[in-house]
Design a protein around this nucleic acid. Structure first.
Lengths: 335, 335
DNA sequence: GTTGCTTTCTACAACGTTGTAAGCAACGTT
DNA sequence: AACGTTGCTTACAACGTTGTAGAAAGCAAC
């Protein structure tokens, strides 16, 4: 029992277009007429058919958010903020998981974009600038690492600066053998490269040597990999006295491994992460970390996208920095 | 530069409908013609307009998943599985956050359902049977607690039995003062009521008294509330020697509070949770919990919904139980 | 060379909506 | 009385797609 404008129009004794005008809040409708129409709408429980509206308007009112994995807390928290920010502007969000592979990301970037959504907020891991260059003009905003010379708008924090600051904090505690967990040699590892660069810069600032053996790789930045990496660092002849993990889940895994090894945090080994996920505020010990302003990132991304959809699509790509701060907790400062 | 069937048709020198037939894999098209059309499609990079297709077909190919909060790990993990299962059946998933309030849930249940989506997988906290009864016939599958006499299909585990089992496990460890965290007196607290019932049943099975003072409330089941509740339990004249938390985030908060109080887990207090979220496998100590088979739940929900969309919408509501198991880890069994 | 069947293709209408242009009152101005 | 202005309403066409009905062409069988 779905009703159409036509049904409402017949019931109210007006034309279809007048009903449409009432539904869309057009001003020049006599109060009397408006009331009759609204009554008919209520009686029939009329709801607009969005497919038809979209077809007519060439807009769907839906934007997509594509992230590598939904159950990585950082992306889940980000998704929450994007949905909230989009709702405030009247957009609905369709969430997509890419899995993080380059091919899958290419499919999402190229495939989803047609006609079902008006724009895309994309947090790619593996996508390169060439992949993006081939796309038609669906408005897109990129999150996370900067895809070099990317053809789309971008919102993100300064990874190098943030990594440098948190590493400097570890150095400021008097630590000298500072390890890093999360390096990636693959082309996907843009974040990893930037954070490693910040780490190296901080060491250089303090006159400390960059020791290759203190840098542990982690292909996917999951908790388990953090634990494995930490164990291998602990098996070195001289163990590190601090670790900078390239994200919080790695750090939580590292904390777990340190606990199993019977070491105290931060007394024996100080641990810092990146992302400020909720878990880190309740872990034992609580986790020092870089806290990107996720709400701000989400809001900027949505606004930038809305702007691109409504406005000039050919304007040159914009680069918006997002703020971050250090959250220093027990894992570096003690109870 | 968007192209339509018409553009392809002109280029290939055939009618619009023939192109449509090729796109839809209709069999009776001469190989020769098909080849010409496909070539034209490739040259123009033609993509179907989904709004138009949906309008014509009355289907959108999109289902919605509505959960209270995306950044609660349990829902994030569930969402991941739903997206995956839906993709295998050719559906796209639109994810919605309700916030968990009854009014918001009512809006989502009633409002989203029209014309943009073909069906809804809904994990309500507060919604009552009456709320659902008023809805028109959009196919819907409910997750989580059973809404009594609900008018929709339902997938979920047996909360009472699961809570009873995990409580029995605590009793089996020799604990006698077993607390519970997460009770809710509001009508929203369907899960809480069921899990509390299972807890009480296990106590009764073992001939233990049900002690009201050992049951701590928590309105939203966040980590912080788990910590607060644990602290208040520790301030009792005789402190508990075990706690059953109604979900894992509460349990993680409780672990944190126990750590701050200098108590050992499980030696002084054993802790059990519910949901088996990823965090619990890496916390210190690792968390014993009830592990619902989330992948199975997601798959069942998607299949049930697809069935409802394609098939008989008036068939009486189905009730599908999902499996679960106990994951016993350090927080009850020690290292 | 008529009949009937199959294969291949086409014209047309419809899905439900909104933009455009235009119509019709009622009103005020000249 | 004629004219413009304003407010309100309507008819029509279009958005891009697919279902229906049927035409055209080829083939086989009499």
């Amino acid at each position: 029992m779905r009703h159409r404008l036509k049904d409402v129009a017949e019931r109210a004794g007006v034309s279809v277009k007048t009903v449409s005008n009432v539904v869309n809040g057009y001003v020049h409708v006599k109060p009397d007429t408006r009331a009759r129409v609204e009554e008919a709408i209520a009686e029939l429980k009329y709801r607009p058919n969005l497919s038809a509206r979209n077809l007519r308007k060439g807009r769907t009112g839906v934007i997509a958010l594509a992230v590598p994995e939904l159950d990585i807390p950082y992306f889940a928290e980000l998704a929450r903020h994007v949905v909230t920010a989009a709702a405030e502007l009247g957009w609905t969000v369709l969430i997509d998981q890419t899995g993080g592979g380059r091919e899958q990301e290419r499919v999402v970037a190229g495939g989803i974009t047609e006609h079902l959504i008006d724009g895309l907020i994309f947090s790619p891991l593996a996508l390169t600038a060439e992949d993006l260059a081939g796309l038609d003009g669906t408005p897109m905003v990129l999150l996370g690492e900067r895809v070099d010379r990317g053809p789309a708008d971008h919102v993100g924090i300064d990874n190098v600066a943030a990594a440098r600051e948190i590493t400097a904090h570890l150095i400021g505690l008097g630590r000298r053998r500072i390890a890093a967990i999360g390096s990636q040699r693959t082309p996907e590892g843009a974040s990893a490269r930037l954070r490693l660069a910040g780490y190296a810069a901080a060491l250089a600032d303090a006159g400390l040597d960059f020791d290759e053996t203190l840098v542990a790789p982690a292909p996917a930045w999951h908790r388990a990999e953090g634990a494995v990496a930490m164990r291998s660092l602990l098996s070195l002849p001289v163990r590190p006295d601090a670790v900078f993990c390239f994200n919080d889940t790695l750090a939580l895994g590292a904390l777990r491994a340190l606990h199993e090894a019977g070491l105290r945090v931060p007394e024996d080994v100080a641990v810092a992460g990146f992302d400020d996920i909720e878990d880190g505020r309740f872990s034992v010990p609580t986790l020092s970390t870089v806290a990107p302003d996720k709400e701000r990132i989400a809001r900027l991304a949505v606004e930038l996208l809305a702007d691109r959809i409504d406005g000039d699509r050919t304007a040159s790509p914009r680069e918006l920095p997002a703020p971050y701060r250090l959250e220093l907790r027990e894992s570096t400062q003690g109870p």
